[in-house]
Design a protein around this nucleic acid. Sequence first.
DNA 1: GTAATAGTGTCTATCAGACACTATGGT
DNA 2: ACCATAGTGTCTGATAGACACTATTAC
Lengths: 237, 237
Amino acid sequence: MSTSMIVERPLATVDIAIFAVRDGALNVLLVQRPKGAGEPFPGSWALPGGFVDVRKDASLEACAIRKLSEKTGVRAPYLEQLGFWGGAKRDPRGWSVTCAYFALIVPPESSVKGGNAIDLRWWPVEGSNKPVRLAFDHGDVLGTALQRLRSKVEYTSLPAFLMPDQFTLPELQAVYESILGRALDKSAFRTRTLAADFLEPTREMRLGANRPAQVYRLLHRDLVYFPRPFAPRTRDK
Amino acid sequence: MSTSMIVERPLATVDIAIFAVRDGALNVLLVQRPKGAGEPFPGSWALPGGFVDVRKDASLEACAIRKLSEKTGVRAPYLEQLGFWGGAKRDPRGWSVTCAYFALIVPPESSVKGGNAIDLRWWPVEGSNKPVRLAFDHGDVLGTALQRLRSKVEYTSLPAFLMPDQFTLPELQAVYESILGRALDKSAFRTRTLAADFLEPTREMRLGANRPAQVYRLLHRDLVYFPRPFAPRTRDK
DNA sequence: GTAATAGTGTCTATCAGACACTATGGT
DNA sequence: ACCATAGTGTCTGATAGACACTATTAC
Protein backbone atom coordinates (compact mmCIF):
# COMPACT_ATOMS: atom_id res chain seq x y z
CA MET A 1 0.00 0.00 0.00
CA SER A 2 2.96 2.36 0.21
CA THR A 3 4.06 4.56 -2.63
CA SER A 4 7.00 2.38 -3.45
CA MET A 5 4.60 -0.34 -4.57
CA ILE A 6 3.42 1.87 -7.40
CA VAL A 7 5.44 0.86 -10.37
CA GLU A 8 3.57 2.81 -12.98
CA ARG A 9 1.41 5.89 -12.87
CA PRO A 10 -1.23 6.62 -15.49
CA LEU A 11 -0.98 9.72 -17.65
CA ALA A 12 -3.16 12.50 -16.31
CA THR A 13 -4.79 15.08 -18.54
CA VAL A 14 -7.39 17.78 -18.25
CA ASP A 15 -9.76 18.43 -21.15
CA ILE A 16 -12.45 21.04 -21.50
CA ALA A 17 -15.63 21.16 -23.50
CA ILE A 18 -15.96 24.87 -24.18
CA PHE A 19 -19.29 26.10 -25.48
CA ALA A 20 -20.37 29.46 -26.80
CA VAL A 21 -23.23 30.82 -28.86
CA ARG A 22 -22.16 32.23 -32.23
CA ASP A 23 -24.69 33.60 -34.71
CA GLY A 24 -27.47 32.18 -32.62
CA ALA A 25 -26.11 28.62 -32.67
CA LEU A 26 -24.33 26.60 -30.05
CA ASN A 27 -20.66 26.02 -30.87
CA VAL A 28 -17.92 23.97 -29.30
CA LEU A 29 -14.24 24.84 -29.46
CA LEU A 30 -11.94 22.15 -30.86
CA VAL A 31 -8.22 21.99 -31.45
CA GLN A 32 -6.39 20.08 -34.14
CA ARG A 33 -3.89 17.48 -32.96
CA PRO A 34 -0.28 18.08 -34.02
CA LYS A 35 1.01 16.02 -36.92
CA GLY A 36 4.50 15.24 -35.61
CA ALA A 37 5.85 11.71 -35.52
CA GLY A 38 4.71 9.68 -32.54
CA GLU A 39 1.75 11.95 -31.92
CA PRO A 40 -1.55 10.16 -31.31
CA PHE A 41 -4.41 10.97 -33.70
CA PRO A 42 -2.37 13.36 -35.88
CA GLY A 43 -4.54 15.95 -37.57
CA SER A 44 -7.69 14.89 -35.75
CA TRP A 45 -9.78 17.38 -33.87
CA ALA A 46 -9.95 17.12 -30.10
CA LEU A 47 -11.19 18.94 -27.06
CA PRO A 48 -8.71 21.54 -25.83
CA GLY A 49 -6.66 20.27 -22.95
CA GLY A 50 -3.51 18.40 -22.19
CA PHE A 51 -1.28 17.04 -19.52
CA VAL A 52 -1.43 18.30 -15.99
CA ASP A 53 1.73 20.24 -15.24
CA VAL A 54 2.57 19.37 -11.66
CA ARG A 55 5.00 22.30 -11.57
CA LYS A 56 2.64 25.00 -12.80
CA ASP A 57 -0.77 23.82 -11.66
CA ALA A 58 -1.79 23.90 -8.03
CA SER A 59 -4.96 21.93 -8.72
CA LEU A 60 -7.00 20.39 -11.51
CA GLU A 61 -9.28 23.39 -11.59
CA ALA A 62 -6.32 25.77 -11.79
CA CYS A 63 -5.04 23.66 -14.66
CA ALA A 64 -8.37 23.92 -16.47
CA ILE A 65 -8.55 27.67 -15.95
CA ARG A 66 -5.01 28.05 -17.27
CA LYS A 67 -5.72 26.03 -20.38
CA LEU A 68 -8.96 27.83 -21.02
CA SER A 69 -7.31 31.18 -20.67
CA GLU A 70 -4.45 30.16 -22.98
CA LYS A 71 -6.87 29.07 -25.68
CA THR A 72 -9.54 31.73 -25.46
CA GLY A 73 -8.28 34.58 -23.33
CA VAL A 74 -11.42 34.21 -21.22
CA ARG A 75 -10.65 34.48 -17.53
CA ALA A 76 -13.94 33.99 -15.72
CA PRO A 77 -15.91 31.30 -17.46
CA TYR A 78 -18.73 29.25 -16.12
CA LEU A 79 -16.82 26.11 -15.22
CA GLU A 80 -18.03 22.85 -13.75
CA GLN A 81 -16.71 19.33 -13.57
CA LEU A 82 -18.02 17.08 -16.29
CA GLY A 83 -16.59 13.70 -15.38
CA PHE A 84 -13.57 11.51 -15.77
CA TRP A 85 -12.56 8.93 -18.33
CA GLY A 86 -9.72 6.53 -17.65
CA GLY A 87 -8.47 3.25 -19.02
CA ALA A 88 -5.72 1.33 -20.69
CA LYS A 89 -6.85 1.80 -24.25
CA ARG A 90 -8.03 5.35 -24.69
CA ASP A 91 -4.61 6.82 -25.41
CA PRO A 92 -2.05 4.85 -27.43
CA ARG A 93 0.70 6.27 -25.23
CA GLY A 94 -0.55 4.26 -22.27
CA TRP A 95 -3.02 4.00 -19.39
CA SER A 96 -4.47 7.48 -19.06
CA VAL A 97 -7.00 9.44 -17.12
CA THR A 98 -8.67 12.62 -18.22
CA CYS A 99 -10.52 14.92 -15.89
CA ALA A 100 -12.99 16.74 -18.10
CA TYR A 101 -14.52 20.14 -17.47
CA PHE A 102 -17.44 21.88 -19.01
CA ALA A 103 -17.19 25.61 -19.72
CA LEU A 104 -19.61 28.20 -21.02
CA ILE A 105 -18.14 31.43 -22.31
CA VAL A 106 -19.03 34.50 -24.27
CA PRO A 107 -17.03 34.19 -27.47
CA PRO A 108 -14.22 36.75 -27.71
CA GLU A 109 -14.92 39.37 -30.39
CA SER A 110 -11.77 38.67 -32.34
CA SER A 111 -11.38 35.13 -33.52
CA VAL A 112 -10.28 32.75 -30.84
CA LYS A 113 -6.62 33.52 -31.03
CA GLY A 114 -5.78 34.34 -27.50
CA GLY A 115 -2.47 32.56 -27.84
CA ASN A 116 -0.56 30.71 -30.47
CA ALA A 117 -3.68 28.93 -31.48
CA ILE A 118 -4.13 28.73 -35.20
CA ASP A 119 -5.35 25.15 -35.10
CA LEU A 120 -8.30 26.22 -33.02
CA ARG A 121 -11.80 26.34 -34.43
CA TRP A 122 -15.38 26.77 -33.36
CA TRP A 123 -17.63 23.98 -34.56
CA PRO A 124 -21.39 24.34 -34.62
CA VAL A 125 -23.21 21.66 -32.67
CA GLU A 126 -26.04 21.10 -35.11
CA GLY A 127 -28.77 18.85 -33.87
CA SER A 128 -27.21 16.03 -31.93
CA ASN A 129 -24.43 15.45 -34.45
CA LYS A 130 -20.84 15.53 -33.42
CA PRO A 131 -18.91 18.01 -35.51
CA VAL A 132 -16.33 15.44 -36.67
CA ARG A 133 -14.81 12.19 -35.54
CA LEU A 134 -12.78 13.30 -32.54
CA ALA A 135 -9.44 12.08 -31.23
CA PHE A 136 -9.20 9.75 -28.23
CA ASP A 137 -12.62 9.19 -26.66
CA HIS A 138 -13.40 12.87 -26.96
CA GLY A 139 -16.51 12.05 -28.91
CA ASP A 140 -17.89 10.41 -25.78
CA VAL A 141 -16.76 13.32 -23.65
CA LEU A 142 -18.38 15.85 -25.94
CA GLY A 143 -21.53 13.74 -26.06
CA THR A 144 -21.71 13.70 -22.30
CA ALA A 145 -21.14 17.44 -22.19
CA LEU A 146 -23.98 18.07 -24.62
CA GLN A 147 -26.28 15.80 -22.67
CA ARG A 148 -25.41 17.66 -19.50
CA LEU A 149 -25.95 21.01 -21.17
CA ARG A 150 -29.30 20.09 -22.67
CA SER A 151 -30.48 18.50 -19.48
CA LYS A 152 -29.56 21.46 -17.32
CA VAL A 153 -31.13 23.92 -19.73
CA GLU A 154 -34.46 22.34 -18.84
CA TYR A 155 -34.33 23.39 -15.23
CA THR A 156 -31.52 25.88 -14.60
CA SER A 157 -30.28 29.30 -15.57
CA LEU A 158 -27.30 27.80 -17.43
CA PRO A 159 -27.84 29.62 -20.74
CA ALA A 160 -27.43 32.92 -18.94
CA PHE A 161 -23.71 32.21 -18.89
CA LEU A 162 -23.64 32.11 -22.67
CA MET A 163 -25.00 35.66 -22.85
CA PRO A 164 -23.00 38.86 -23.05
CA ASP A 165 -23.15 41.28 -20.13
CA GLN A 166 -26.32 42.89 -21.33
CA PHE A 167 -29.19 41.07 -22.94
CA THR A 168 -32.95 41.05 -23.24
CA LEU A 169 -35.38 38.35 -22.22
CA PRO A 170 -36.32 37.44 -25.79
CA GLU A 171 -32.60 37.08 -26.56
CA LEU A 172 -32.18 34.75 -23.59
CA GLN A 173 -35.25 32.80 -24.62
CA ALA A 174 -33.82 32.37 -28.10
CA VAL A 175 -30.70 30.76 -26.62
CA TYR A 176 -32.80 28.41 -24.51
CA GLU A 177 -34.77 27.48 -27.59
CA SER A 178 -31.75 26.95 -29.79
CA ILE A 179 -30.20 24.56 -27.27
CA LEU A 180 -33.44 22.75 -26.55
CA GLY A 181 -34.41 22.62 -30.17
CA ARG A 182 -37.98 23.56 -29.46
CA ALA A 183 -40.04 26.69 -28.94
CA LEU A 184 -41.03 27.85 -25.47
CA ASP A 185 -44.02 29.86 -24.45
CA LYS A 186 -43.08 33.50 -24.02
CA SER A 187 -45.30 34.13 -21.05
CA ALA A 188 -44.27 31.07 -19.10
CA PHE A 189 -40.64 31.75 -19.88
CA ARG A 190 -40.82 35.31 -18.60
CA THR A 191 -42.65 34.35 -15.44
CA ARG A 192 -40.32 31.60 -14.37
CA THR A 193 -37.17 33.43 -15.40
CA LEU A 194 -38.01 36.63 -13.57
CA ALA A 195 -39.28 34.72 -10.53
CA ALA A 196 -35.94 32.94 -10.28
CA ASP A 197 -34.43 36.27 -9.34
CA PHE A 198 -31.08 36.13 -11.05
CA LEU A 199 -31.69 38.98 -13.49
CA GLU A 200 -31.51 42.67 -12.83
CA PRO A 201 -33.07 45.19 -15.21
CA THR A 202 -30.67 47.88 -16.37
CA ARG A 203 -31.71 51.39 -17.26
CA GLU A 204 -31.29 50.60 -20.92
CA MET A 205 -33.72 49.41 -23.53
CA ARG A 206 -32.80 47.50 -26.68
CA LEU A 207 -34.10 49.47 -29.66
CA GLY A 208 -35.08 47.94 -32.95
CA ALA A 209 -37.72 48.08 -35.60
CA ASN A 210 -40.38 47.56 -32.99
CA ARG A 211 -41.21 47.96 -29.35
CA PRO A 212 -37.98 48.28 -27.33
CA ALA A 213 -37.05 45.49 -24.94
CA GLN A 214 -35.86 45.80 -21.38
CA VAL A 215 -32.16 45.07 -21.06
CA TYR A 216 -31.08 42.86 -18.17
CA ARG A 217 -27.82 41.79 -16.61
CA LEU A 218 -26.91 38.94 -14.29
CA LEU A 219 -27.39 39.62 -10.60
CA HIS A 220 -24.77 37.07 -9.59
CA ARG A 221 -22.71 34.23 -11.04
CA ASP A 222 -24.44 31.30 -9.35
CA LEU A 223 -26.36 28.69 -11.25
CA VAL A 224 -30.05 28.90 -10.36
CA TYR A 225 -32.31 25.86 -10.30
CA PHE A 226 -35.93 26.32 -11.33
CA PRO A 227 -38.55 24.53 -9.24
CA ARG A 228 -39.59 22.40 -12.21
CA PRO A 229 -38.28 21.61 -15.66
CA PHE A 230 -40.09 22.98 -18.66
CA ALA A 231 -43.14 20.80 -18.92
CA PRO A 232 -43.48 18.66 -22.00
CA ARG A 233 -46.23 20.01 -24.22
CA THR A 234 -49.61 19.08 -22.85
CA ARG A 235 -52.00 20.33 -25.51
CA ASP A 236 -50.80 19.02 -28.82
CA LYS A 237 -53.70 19.90 -31.06
CA MET B 1 3.50 18.43 -26.21
CA SER B 2 4.87 14.94 -26.66
CA THR B 3 5.03 12.39 -23.90
CA SER B 4 8.73 12.86 -23.39
CA MET B 5 8.04 16.36 -22.11
CA ILE B 6 6.19 14.94 -19.14
CA VAL B 7 8.73 14.75 -16.37
CA GLU B 8 6.38 13.90 -13.58
CA ARG B 9 3.01 12.24 -13.45
CA PRO B 10 0.56 12.76 -10.60
CA LEU B 11 -0.50 9.88 -8.39
CA ALA B 12 -3.85 8.49 -9.48
CA THR B 13 -6.31 6.96 -7.05
CA VAL B 14 -9.90 5.83 -7.04
CA ASP B 15 -12.03 6.35 -3.92
CA ILE B 16 -15.59 5.32 -3.29
CA ALA B 17 -18.24 6.71 -1.00
CA ILE B 18 -20.24 3.59 -0.21
CA PHE B 19 -23.62 4.08 1.42
CA ALA B 20 -26.05 1.62 2.92
CA VAL B 21 -29.02 1.77 5.25
CA ARG B 22 -28.45 -0.05 8.53
CA ASP B 23 -31.09 -0.09 11.26
CA GLY B 24 -33.03 2.53 9.39
CA ALA B 25 -30.16 4.99 9.25
CA LEU B 26 -27.85 5.96 6.42
CA ASN B 27 -24.31 4.69 6.92
CA VAL B 28 -21.06 5.21 5.06
CA LEU B 29 -18.25 2.67 4.91
CA LEU B 30 -14.83 3.90 6.03
CA VAL B 31 -11.45 2.25 6.27
CA GLN B 32 -8.71 3.01 8.74
CA ARG B 33 -5.37 4.13 7.29
CA PRO B 34 -2.42 1.86 8.04
CA LYS B 35 -0.05 2.99 10.76
CA GLY B 36 3.27 2.04 9.12
CA ALA B 37 6.13 4.50 8.83
CA GLY B 38 5.81 6.88 5.93
CA GLU B 39 2.09 6.32 5.64
CA PRO B 40 0.00 9.47 5.28
CA PHE B 41 -2.68 10.08 7.94
CA PRO B 42 -1.81 6.95 9.97
CA GLY B 43 -4.80 5.67 11.91
CA SER B 44 -7.21 8.15 10.36
CA TRP B 45 -10.40 6.99 8.73
CA ALA B 46 -10.76 7.39 4.99
CA LEU B 47 -12.99 6.44 2.10
CA PRO B 48 -12.17 3.01 0.72
CA GLY B 49 -10.02 3.22 -2.36
CA GLY B 50 -6.44 3.39 -3.44
CA PHE B 51 -4.09 3.56 -6.35
CA VAL B 52 -5.13 2.59 -9.80
CA ASP B 53 -3.38 -0.59 -10.80
CA VAL B 54 -2.51 -0.17 -14.47
CA ARG B 55 -1.79 -3.88 -14.69
CA LYS B 56 -5.03 -5.16 -13.19
CA ASP B 57 -7.58 -2.47 -14.04
CA ALA B 58 -8.83 -1.99 -17.58
CA SER B 59 -10.60 1.24 -16.64
CA LEU B 60 -11.40 3.51 -13.74
CA GLU B 61 -14.81 1.96 -13.38
CA ALA B 62 -13.34 -1.55 -13.37
CA CYS B 63 -10.97 -0.37 -10.68
CA ALA B 64 -13.85 0.96 -8.58
CA ILE B 65 -15.83 -2.24 -8.99
CA ARG B 66 -12.81 -4.29 -7.99
CA LYS B 67 -12.19 -2.25 -4.86
CA LEU B 68 -15.82 -2.30 -3.90
CA SER B 69 -16.01 -6.02 -4.32
CA GLU B 70 -12.83 -6.52 -2.30
CA LYS B 71 -14.17 -4.48 0.60
CA THR B 72 -17.79 -5.53 0.68
CA GLY B 73 -18.24 -8.61 -1.49
CA VAL B 74 -20.98 -6.73 -3.32
CA ARG B 75 -20.79 -7.27 -7.07
CA ALA B 76 -23.59 -5.22 -8.59
CA PRO B 77 -23.87 -1.96 -6.74
CA TYR B 78 -25.47 1.21 -7.89
CA LEU B 79 -22.38 3.09 -9.03
CA GLU B 80 -22.01 6.56 -10.46
CA GLN B 81 -19.20 9.03 -10.85
CA LEU B 82 -19.02 11.58 -8.07
CA GLY B 83 -16.23 13.88 -9.19
CA PHE B 84 -12.52 14.35 -9.11
CA TRP B 85 -10.18 16.08 -6.73
CA GLY B 86 -6.61 16.83 -7.69
CA GLY B 87 -3.86 19.09 -6.52
CA ALA B 88 -0.37 19.44 -5.15
CA LYS B 89 -1.28 19.48 -1.48
CA ARG B 90 -3.97 16.91 -0.85
CA ASP B 91 -1.60 13.98 -0.42
CA PRO B 92 1.76 14.45 1.34
CA ARG B 93 3.29 11.95 -1.06
CA GLY B 94 2.88 14.36 -3.95
CA TRP B 95 0.61 15.84 -6.59
CA SER B 96 -2.36 13.49 -6.73
CA VAL B 97 -5.69 13.01 -8.41
CA THR B 98 -8.56 10.98 -7.08
CA CYS B 99 -11.47 9.90 -9.19
CA ALA B 100 -14.30 9.43 -6.73
CA TYR B 101 -17.31 7.19 -7.13
CA PHE B 102 -20.55 7.03 -5.31
CA ALA B 103 -22.06 3.62 -4.52
CA LEU B 104 -25.31 2.47 -2.96
CA ILE B 105 -25.44 -1.09 -1.72
CA VAL B 106 -27.52 -3.39 0.41
CA PRO B 107 -25.32 -4.15 3.40
CA PRO B 108 -24.08 -7.74 3.45
CA GLU B 109 -25.70 -9.73 6.25
CA SER B 110 -22.43 -10.66 7.90
CA SER B 111 -20.26 -7.78 8.93
CA VAL B 112 -18.42 -6.18 6.08
CA LYS B 113 -15.58 -8.61 5.92
CA GLY B 114 -15.53 -9.60 2.34
CA GLY B 115 -11.76 -9.61 2.37
CA ASN B 116 -8.95 -8.98 4.79
CA ALA B 117 -10.78 -5.97 6.08
CA ILE B 118 -10.74 -5.71 9.83
CA ASP B 119 -10.11 -1.96 9.74
CA LEU B 120 -13.39 -1.47 7.95
CA ARG B 121 -16.40 0.08 9.66
CA TRP B 122 -19.84 1.44 8.94
CA TRP B 123 -20.35 4.96 10.28
CA PRO B 124 -23.79 6.46 10.65
CA VAL B 125 -24.26 9.72 8.80
CA GLU B 126 -26.23 11.52 11.47
CA GLY B 127 -27.70 14.84 10.39
CA SER B 128 -25.13 16.62 8.30
CA ASN B 129 -22.20 15.73 10.55
CA LYS B 130 -19.24 13.95 9.18
CA PRO B 131 -18.53 10.81 11.17
CA VAL B 132 -14.97 11.80 12.03
CA ARG B 133 -12.19 13.95 10.68
CA LEU B 134 -11.21 12.05 7.58
CA ALA B 135 -7.82 11.54 5.93
CA PHE B 136 -6.76 13.56 2.88
CA ASP B 137 -9.62 15.71 1.61
CA HIS B 138 -12.03 12.83 2.05
CA GLY B 139 -14.18 15.01 4.27
CA ASP B 140 -14.88 17.17 1.22
CA VAL B 141 -15.48 14.14 -0.93
CA LEU B 142 -17.90 12.64 1.55
CA GLY B 143 -19.64 16.00 1.92
CA THR B 144 -20.10 16.19 -1.83
CA ALA B 145 -21.39 12.63 -1.90
CA LEU B 146 -23.96 13.40 0.78
CA GLN B 147 -25.05 16.53 -1.02
CA ARG B 148 -25.48 14.55 -4.21
CA LEU B 149 -27.39 11.82 -2.42
CA ARG B 150 -29.75 14.20 -0.66
CA SER B 151 -30.29 16.24 -3.76
CA LYS B 152 -31.10 13.24 -5.93
CA VAL B 153 -33.42 11.78 -3.33
CA GLU B 154 -35.66 14.78 -3.97
CA TYR B 155 -36.36 13.88 -7.56
CA THR B 156 -35.15 10.36 -8.37
CA SER B 157 -35.63 6.73 -7.41
CA LEU B 158 -32.14 6.59 -5.86
CA PRO B 159 -33.19 5.18 -2.48
CA ALA B 160 -34.57 2.13 -4.22
CA PHE B 161 -30.97 0.97 -4.61
CA LEU B 162 -30.54 0.95 -0.85
CA MET B 163 -33.40 -1.52 -0.46
CA PRO B 164 -33.17 -5.30 -0.36
CA ASP B 165 -34.72 -7.28 -3.20
CA GLN B 166 -38.16 -7.22 -1.66
CA PHE B 167 -39.66 -4.27 0.15
CA THR B 168 -42.90 -2.46 0.76
CA LEU B 169 -43.83 1.10 -0.12
CA PRO B 170 -43.88 2.27 3.51
CA GLU B 171 -40.40 0.81 3.92
CA LEU B 172 -39.18 2.70 0.87
CA GLN B 173 -40.83 5.87 2.11
CA ALA B 174 -39.07 5.50 5.45
CA VAL B 175 -35.71 5.44 3.66
CA TYR B 176 -36.61 8.54 1.68
CA GLU B 177 -37.60 10.25 4.90
CA SER B 178 -34.52 9.24 6.82
CA ILE B 179 -32.24 10.63 4.11
CA LEU B 180 -34.25 13.78 3.62
CA GLY B 181 -34.73 14.31 7.31
CA ARG B 182 -38.37 15.20 6.93
CA ALA B 183 -41.70 13.45 6.67
CA LEU B 184 -43.43 12.97 3.33
CA ASP B 185 -47.11 12.66 2.64
CA LYS B 186 -48.07 9.02 2.23
CA SER B 187 -50.57 9.58 -0.52
CA ALA B 188 -48.38 11.82 -2.64
CA PHE B 189 -45.47 9.47 -2.15
CA ARG B 190 -47.42 6.46 -3.32
CA THR B 191 -48.85 8.24 -6.33
CA ARG B 192 -45.58 9.54 -7.66
CA THR B 193 -43.63 6.41 -6.89
CA LEU B 194 -46.05 4.05 -8.56
CA ALA B 195 -46.52 6.40 -11.50
CA ALA B 196 -42.76 6.34 -12.08
CA ASP B 197 -43.14 2.71 -13.07
CA PHE B 198 -39.98 1.20 -11.67
CA LEU B 199 -41.68 -1.07 -9.12
CA GLU B 200 -43.33 -4.37 -9.70
CA PRO B 201 -45.68 -5.89 -7.14
CA THR B 202 -44.79 -9.41 -6.12
CA ARG B 203 -47.29 -12.01 -5.03
CA GLU B 204 -46.23 -11.60 -1.45
CA MET B 205 -47.55 -9.43 1.34
CA ARG B 206 -45.54 -8.24 4.31
CA LEU B 207 -47.39 -9.43 7.44
CA GLY B 208 -47.25 -7.70 10.79
CA ALA B 209 -49.44 -6.65 13.65
CA ASN B 210 -51.68 -4.79 11.27
CA ARG B 211 -52.90 -4.68 7.72
CA PRO B 212 -50.40 -6.46 5.44
CA ALA B 213 -48.46 -4.42 2.93
CA GLN B 214 -47.88 -5.19 -0.72
CA VAL B 215 -44.32 -6.33 -1.38
CA TYR B 216 -42.58 -4.85 -4.41
CA ARG B 217 -39.37 -5.43 -6.28
CA LEU B 218 -37.41 -3.32 -8.76
CA LEU B 219 -38.48 -3.62 -12.36
CA HIS B 220 -35.04 -2.63 -13.66
CA ARG B 221 -31.77 -1.14 -12.48
CA ASP B 222 -32.05 2.29 -14.06
CA LEU B 223 -32.30 5.46 -12.06
CA VAL B 224 -35.70 7.07 -12.63
CA TYR B 225 -36.21 10.83 -12.58
CA PHE B 226 -39.50 12.13 -11.23
CA PRO B 227 -41.11 14.99 -13.14
CA ARG B 228 -40.75 17.29 -10.13
CA PRO B 229 -38.92 17.30 -6.83
CA PHE B 230 -40.91 16.91 -3.65
CA ALA B 231 -42.50 20.30 -3.18
CA PRO B 232 -41.48 22.25 -0.11
CA ARG B 233 -44.30 22.30 2.41
CA THR B 234 -46.93 24.76 1.35
CA ARG B 235 -49.37 24.75 4.20
CA ASP B 236 -47.41 25.20 7.38
CA LYS B 237 -50.09 25.70 9.92
C1' DG C 1 -63.99 -5.08 19.34
C1' DT C 2 -59.50 -2.45 19.45
C1' DA C 3 -55.08 -1.15 17.86
C1' DA C 4 -52.18 -0.34 14.26
C1' DT C 5 -50.68 0.35 9.99
C1' DA C 6 -51.81 -0.04 4.71
C1' DG C 7 -53.93 2.03 1.26
C1' DT C 8 -57.67 5.31 -1.14
C1' DG C 9 -60.52 9.37 -2.25
C1' DT C 10 -61.32 14.11 -2.34
C1' DC C 11 -60.42 18.89 -2.02
C1' DT C 12 -57.60 22.70 -2.98
C1' DA C 13 -53.65 25.69 -3.90
C1' DT C 14 -50.34 26.26 -7.20
C1' DC C 15 -48.51 26.96 -11.46
C1' DA C 16 -47.10 26.22 -16.25
C1' DG C 17 -48.84 26.27 -20.93
C1' DA C 18 -51.94 28.27 -24.20
C1' DC C 19 -53.27 32.12 -26.31
C1' DA C 20 -55.46 36.40 -26.89
C1' DC C 21 -54.70 40.87 -25.77
C1' DT C 22 -52.29 45.40 -25.11
C1' DA C 23 -47.99 48.41 -25.56
C1' DT C 24 -44.54 50.81 -28.04
C1' DG C 25 -41.21 51.63 -31.00
C1' DG C 26 -39.77 52.19 -36.41
C1' DT C 27 -41.13 53.26 -40.98
C1' DA D 1 -51.65 53.86 -40.22
C1' DC D 2 -49.26 49.59 -40.26
C1' DC D 3 -45.92 46.22 -38.88
C1' DA D 4 -43.19 43.81 -35.82
C1' DT D 5 -41.89 42.49 -31.65
C1' DA D 6 -42.23 43.28 -26.34
C1' DG D 7 -44.77 42.41 -22.67
C1' DT D 8 -49.43 41.26 -19.90
C1' DG D 9 -53.82 39.04 -18.46
C1' DT D 10 -56.77 35.28 -18.20
C1' DC D 11 -58.24 30.64 -18.52
C1' DT D 12 -57.48 25.91 -17.83
C1' DG D 13 -55.48 21.41 -17.07
C1' DA D 14 -52.38 18.86 -14.27
C1' DT D 15 -50.75 17.63 -10.01
C1' DA D 16 -48.77 17.54 -5.29
C1' DG D 17 -49.90 18.18 -0.58
C1' DA D 18 -53.27 17.88 3.06
C1' DC D 19 -56.08 15.06 5.35
C1' DA D 20 -59.99 12.36 6.21
C1' DC D 21 -61.60 8.08 5.14
C1' DT D 22 -61.70 2.92 4.37
C1' DA D 23 -59.33 -1.79 4.53
C1' DT D 24 -57.17 -5.62 6.68
C1' DT D 25 -54.53 -7.98 9.64
C1' DA D 26 -53.18 -9.56 14.88
C1' DC D 27 -54.66 -9.79 19.33
